[in-house]
């Protein structure tokens, strides 16, 4: 059993900074053996958290990427039909009995395991990442519910397969669609907000080792301001890491208006957002010049959700 401090330390060893809330939530999840639904704006490291968790627990990560039209056969299992037919043809003349041939054809060798079945049959409890579950349709969500409750699969030809160890399940969602209440009730819930200024500076230091402290401060400060602007796509942590890397590889020690203009593509991914930046030039220049904190400079609220400030988990 790992406590929150150990979890934080382990994540830190893997160059991933997490806050107390997340560590405690993980601790509860491991103790209660329940799946955890992680939601938050794009680019705050939801998927990455599951990957690091697998490394921290020293177990396998099995990933199921959801998409529209994902169905049970691509999530659970499928028989390898061409191989089965080939084997049936080839063994016709060998003189083996019908029962033997049947047992052969419907053996595990002909079963194509998809992520969910794989997670169940694993010897050590793996981390099962069900990524972007909001992209799958409602029918798949209903199927998933059954799976998360029972942890068993019935294959008509083989019988029922029960999980040896319950996987540690992490579901992520970007909220493109409202998930059903039933799914939410079966999961623990975690909202991952954008990091605070201090957290972001620490993340930049840990993930981009050569970065100067001054530059890290500037990047993090500017990110806080940008996330307060009404952008169509607010930059996440992934963007600030990209940006830090870009500035490092360009050997820029300073973040001035010209550098900003040149490297803005690392941060803003929608053309319309450039106009928004121009309209708020004053606040941004204040941060670039340094000195005043972004809070004083622009007076922007920092608790943002997708840049529109509808969610503020902690104050």
């Amino acid at each position: 059993m790992m406590d929150a401090a150990t979890i934080r330390a382990r994540f830190r060893d893997h160059a991933f900074i997490v806050d107390d809330g997340f560590a405690t939530a993980l601790q509860v999840m491991l103790a209660l053996d329940k799946p955890m639904l992680v939601e938050g704006p794009a680019g705050v490291g939801k998927t990455e958290r599951a990957k690091v968790l697998a490394e921290a627990l020293d177990t396998r990560l099995i990933r199921l990427q959801c998409y529209e039209g994902l169905d049970a056969t691509s999530a659970l299992y499928e028989w390898n039909y061409p191989r089965q037919m080939l084997r049936a043809r080839l063994s016709e003349t060998t003189g083996t009995s019908l029962e033997e041939r049947e047992a052969q054809i419907f053996g595990e060798a002909f079963l194509l395991k998809r992520p969910l079945l794989e997670a169940i049959t694993e010897d050590r409890a793996p981390v099962l990442l069900i990524d972007e579950v909001d992209r799958a349709d409602e029918a798949f969500e209903a199927f998933l519910l059954e799976m998360l409750a029972e942890w068993q699969v019935t294959i008509p030809e083989l019988g029922t397969i029960r999980a040896k160890h319950r996987p540690h399940v992490i579901l992520t969602s970007n909220r493109t669609r409202e998930l059903s209440d039933a799914l939410r009730r079966r999961c623990l819930y975690l909202w991952v907000p954008y990091p605070t200024l201090e957290q972001e500076i620490e993340i930049l230091r840990v993930r981009v080792p050569g970065l100067s402290e001054r530059l890290a401060d500037r990047i993090a400060g500017l990110m806080q301001v940008l996330r307060g602007l009404p952008l169509q796509k607010a930059p996440g942590v992934a963007e600030s890491l990209d940006w830090a890397m870009a500035l490092m590889s360009l050997h820029r020690e300073q973040l001035d208006a010209r550098t900003l203009q040149q490297t803005l593509g690392c941060v803003l991914k929608v053309h319309e957002d450039y106009a928004v930046i121009d309209a708020h030039r004053l606040a941004i220049d204040a941060v670039l010049q340094g000195g005043s904190s972004p809070l004083e400079a622009g007076g922007y609220s920092l608790d943002t959700d997708f840049g529109f400030g509808s969610v503020s988990p902690r104050r």
Binding site: M36, L37, L190, D305, P313
Partner: peptide
Amino acid sequence: DALRPVLCSTPGDV
């Protein structure tokens, strides 16, 4: 921190 993930289920709850 321990009660939050158990009792909440939407961003609004958080």
